[in-house]
Computed example of a mutant assay.
Amino acid sequence: MATFKLEIITPQKVIYSNDVDMLITRTTEGDMGILANHAPLVTELAIGEMKIKIGKDEEKYFVSSGFLEVSKEKVLILADKAMKADEIDIEKAKKEKEVLEAKLKKLNEDRDIAATEHSLKEALTKIKIGETL
């Protein structure tokens, strides 16, 4: 199977840089699979799980928002947040979830509600991904 270069970058650091067989990630349009020689593309990422396949091995990641760019040279993911599934602290994510749910009940401005709902969705997704390991 042909491979392609994948880079995952957050504002803090390069999370991943390697040749891969396949990438499956969540976009704002739905889940998307990328193979070598994919047509050029730029799309927005949604909060969700990303799977990287190399041979028979599969690595799972949490990704929160950002952009995916497919070019001839590589696939680039610029994510607000990204982490390998086995690095997720499930207990911390559950505590975040509880705090955010309580905060959400007290908010009354649309902007604050949207930001808190986004953070809550991140915590719930981390829990779901982390518990699948």
Rank of each mutant, 00 (worst) to 15 (best):
E59C: 02
D19M: 09
K126D: 03
A93C: 08
L107Q: 06
D21I: 00
K51R: 11
V75Q: 05
D57E: 13
A82G: 03
T25G: 11
H38Q: 05
T27W: 01
T132Q: 14
L23G: 04
L133Y: 10
K95Y: 05
A115S: 12
K13A: 12
I88N: 00
A114R: 11
K92N: 14
A102D: 13
A79W: 00
G55M: 02
I47L: 03
K103P: 02
P40T: 11
K60R: 15
G48P: 00
G30W: 02
A123S: 12
E101D: 07
T43Y: 02
I77P: 05
I9L: 15
I24T: 15
S71Y: 14
R26D: 07
K92H: 14
A79Y: 09
I54E: 14
V70D: 02
E59L: 13
L41H: 05
L104S: 04
E29H: 11
E58A: 08
V63H: 03
I129L: 12
E96M: 09
V14C: 13
M83I: 01
K126C: 01
T43R: 04
K60W: 04
I8K: 08
E44N: 13
E69Y: 01
L120Q: 07
I47S: 05
I9H: 04
L45F: 05
E49W: 00
K72T: 15
F62Y: 11
F62T: 04
V42W: 05
K105A: 14
V70T: 08
K105L: 12
Q12M: 12
V20G: 06
H38C: 07
I88K: 01
A82N: 01
I129A: 08
K103H: 00
P11N: 07
V14H: 07
K105C: 06
L23I: 06
R111I: 15
V63I: 15
L35V: 07
I52F: 01
